[in-house]
Design a protein around this nucleic acid. Structure first.
Length: 416
DNA sequence: ATAGGGTTAG
């Protein structure tokens, strides 16, 4: 192995990150720490590593990088601390993000924005607004990304008036022109509180910016929440026009049809998807116990402890039923009768992961689950009930968002 | 090689 210095390895790590080879990034770091390459990680290496940990939700590894930073004199570097705040937030550990934030003597616009986004992402919308106020008091001017975090906080909490006001003052007071993300937040905010037509008008009124597929999907999600068939179909039309329609969009449309009981259209859409070969991806949830990653798919029977898991699952169902939990079937796509629907939802991947968490960790341990898709309404209710009955904190991370369940409530209650 | 980003997905 020819000698390569730290900079060369950093360049390699950076290309790994760009190409989503995130796990390889962790491997290179371990090798560097073990001095297998004749050079040590520097501040730039750590910065990349924290980004990788955030992408993977690899909390333990993130802690390791933080220890390394502190032992090697990078503990106070502002860029690294800002990245730490983001990493902890994106791992669902708001307490630790806040601890880093609090200890920083110098806070710049990135520091504040990271904290505001972290609060928003973890369901503390009001906290994000409060942080923004403090930021103003501290005399740090916000920028476009600060407002992205702030507006998303408003949409998470359904704070329509506040959100609209921020959207306005952003331009008038701070001279920041809204970008597509800002429009996304506002469309989401309007959509969630049920002002679907207003959200549609906002998107159609965009002049300089062209609505992208993500923006349309935001509105489609709102159509699902409010069971709006007509607008839902219009939005899918826009996605088709952009040639950006994906399997998930048709699933949302299916959900909208089934929520209003239009089984004919459910059938048509299913047929359409089959004819076009539109494949839906499987829900997959993972949980780490004693350093081992356990993955579950829907109705998964491949786990070595499957008998125990299903027995635990049945026991949990029994206990939750006693506590008053009733399966919510609005997410189910099939035209089944209520009892069958209740069964069809029983073994979503996150439920299996939760059952395994109950089974394999000591009482009181926080159950942390990562999911590749969004959690359905029923699993959300299930997790709430479970957090209450079993007295456990449950943290579920879906694609970009965290749900913190504690004592029968979720951090995103009412708006998710 | 150098920080912080919203929304959508059975």
């Amino acid at each position: 192995m020819p000698h390569k210095d730290t900079v060369s390895w950093n360049v390699l790590i950076s290309s790994f990150l760009r190409n989503k080879r995130t796990r390889d990034v962790l491997g290179v770091f371990d090798s560097m720490v073990r001095d297998e390459f004749g050079c040590k990680p520097d501040d730039v290496t750590c910065l990349f590593l924290l980004q990788a940990c955030a992408d993977l939700g690899a909390l333990e590894f993130g802690d390791k990088v933080r220890n390394y930073m502190e032992e090697n004199g990078y503990g106070d570097a502002i860029k690294l601390c800002n990245s730490l705040i983001s990493m902890y937030s994106r791992c669902g550990c708001l307490d630790q993000a806040y601890e880093v934030f609090n200890r920083m003597r110098e806070k710049n616009v990135v520091t504040w924005s990271a904290m505001i986004s972290g609060l928003a992402m973890n369901g503390h919308g009001r906290g994000a607004l409060e942080a923004f106020r403090q930021m103003g008091q501290a005399g740090v001017p916000p920028d476009d990304q600060t407002f992205t975090g702030l507006l998303s906080a408003c949409s998470h909490c359904g704070l329509l008036d506040e959100g609209m006001l921020f959207f306005e003052t952003m331009t008038k007071q701070y001279g920041i022109k809204p970008n597509i993300h800002h429009y996304g937040c506002i469309a989401d905010l309007m959509g969630r509180v049920g002002k679907l037509d207003q959200a549609y008008e906002l998107i159609m009124s965009m002049k300089e910016l062209k609505p992208d597929s993500a923006l349309w999907r935001t509105l489609l999600g709102a159509c699902r929440i409010h069971h709006n068939v007509t607008l839902g179909e219009t939005v899918v039309g826009h996605l088709v026009e952009l040639k950006a329609q994906e399997a998930g969009d048709y699933v949302l449309l299916l959900n909208i049809y089934s929520s209003v009981g239009d089984w004919e259209k459910v059938k048509d859409t299913r047929r359409f998807m089959k004819e076009r070969g539109i494949q839906t991806s499987l829900g997959c949830s993972s949980i780490i116990v004693k350093g081992v990653v356990h993955e579950f798919l829907v109705d998964d029977v491949s786990h070595s402890r499957k008998e125990e898991i299903y027995t635990t699952m049945d026991e949990i169902n029994k206990q939750l039923k006693i506590a008053g939990y009733v399966a919510d079937i609005t997410s189910e796509l099939h035209n089944l009768d209520e009892e069958e629907k209740g069964h069809a939802l029983s073994y979503h991947s996150e439920k299996l992961a939760m059952a395994f968490g109950i089974l394999a960790t000591p009482p009181g341990t926080t159950i942390r689950i990562a999911k590749n898709l969004r959690t359905c309404v029923d699993c959300h209710e299930f997790a709430k009930a479970l957090s209450w009955v079993y007295n456990r904190v449950v943290v579920i991370r879906d694609r970009n968002r965290f749900h913190h369940f504690r004592e029968g409530r979720c951090s995103c209650d009412d708006f998710w």
